[in-house]
């Protein structure tokens, strides 16, 4: 009786949806929360804890060798950089498990909103906003001084934890290790552009981030000199076409 019931269940038309809703064994009550540029992000419960699962998927538009190379190196680099960031005192979600074959990382779930949401909601008091911007600057300074380049700093990749308003940095998928001023400067430039493109109406927020970076980074001088150079390069780019 039970076997036939199970067989019946497996043969129903719903069976091929099971994979979609429960991609990986071990994560329960899955819900797809985001399809990013290179990964699907799911929410659920892992080992009894609220967890987030990031599954890199194969990109069919890319050549298979290029795809395999990018997926594997980014997975490894992401986990390594998160560990390194935590050692440097920068909050990141805790890595719970890595499934290499499935290109999947399980993270602790951070309750809170993205900095993008926090800034555009307009709910922040000026003092709290300044504190947040300063926290961003000091976190990046700590990463850079420790040789971690995030690679994709945007206001969507910075979270404000609900419990204590602490800043949590996520998505180290494009990160790299470097102590070269140029790499740090480009990292800052990427964030500046995220601020100017997505929060243009909020005023010069990035200035506060930079001021805090300058205060907290031991090597601020070469980095910010390079940053000025990269900015100029950015402007010149508009040329022929």
């Amino acid at each position: 009786m039970t076997t036939s019931h199970a067989a019946e269940e497996a043969s129903t038309s719903e069976s091929h949806y099971v994979d979609h809703e429960n991609p990986i064994i071990g994560l329960h009550n899955c819900k797809l929360i985001q399809q990013g540029a290179e990964a699907r992000v799911w929410e659920g419960v892992y080992l009894g804890k609220p967890a987030v699962l990031k599954q890199r998927f194969s990109k069919r538009y890319r050549h298979p060798s290029l795809d395999a190379r990018l997926t594997q190196t980014r997975l490894k680099q992401e986990v390594r950089s998160m560990l390194r960031a935590r050692k440097l005192g920068v909050l990141t979600p805790c890595v719970l498990c890595v499934e290499h074959e499935a290109s999947t990382i399980y993270f602790e779930r951070v309750e809170g909103v993205s900095v993008k949401q926090a800034l555009s909601s307009g709910a922040l008091q000026p003092a709290a906003q300044l504190e947040l911007l300063r926290a961003i600057g000091s976190a990046i300074a700590a990463l850079h001084d420790g040789g971690v380049i995030h690679g994709d700093l945007t206001t969507s990749n910075l979270l404000v934890r609900a419990a204590d308003n602490a800043l949590v940095v996520i998505d180290f998928g494009l990160s790299s290790n470097s102590s070269i001023a140029e790499d740090k400067a480009v990292d800052l430039y990427v964030l500046e552009r995220a601020f100017t493109s997505a929060h243009a109406s909020c005023g010069p927020l990035f200035e506060d981030v930079l001021a805090s970076y300058r205060q907290h980074s031991r090597l601020w001088c070469p980095t910010l000199n390079k940053f000025a150079e990269v900015r100029m390069r950015g402007r010149k780019r508009a040329m022929v076409g």
């Binding site: 050549h63 290029l66 190379r69 690679g151 945007t154 494009l174 430039y189 552009r193």
Partner: peptide, 13 residues
């Protein structure tokens, strides 16, 4: 044949 070349993406740049 696909020859491996550098791949340089920095955020959206």
């Amino acid at each position: 044949r696909y020859i491996e070349l550098p791949y340089v993406v920095k955020g959206m740049d």
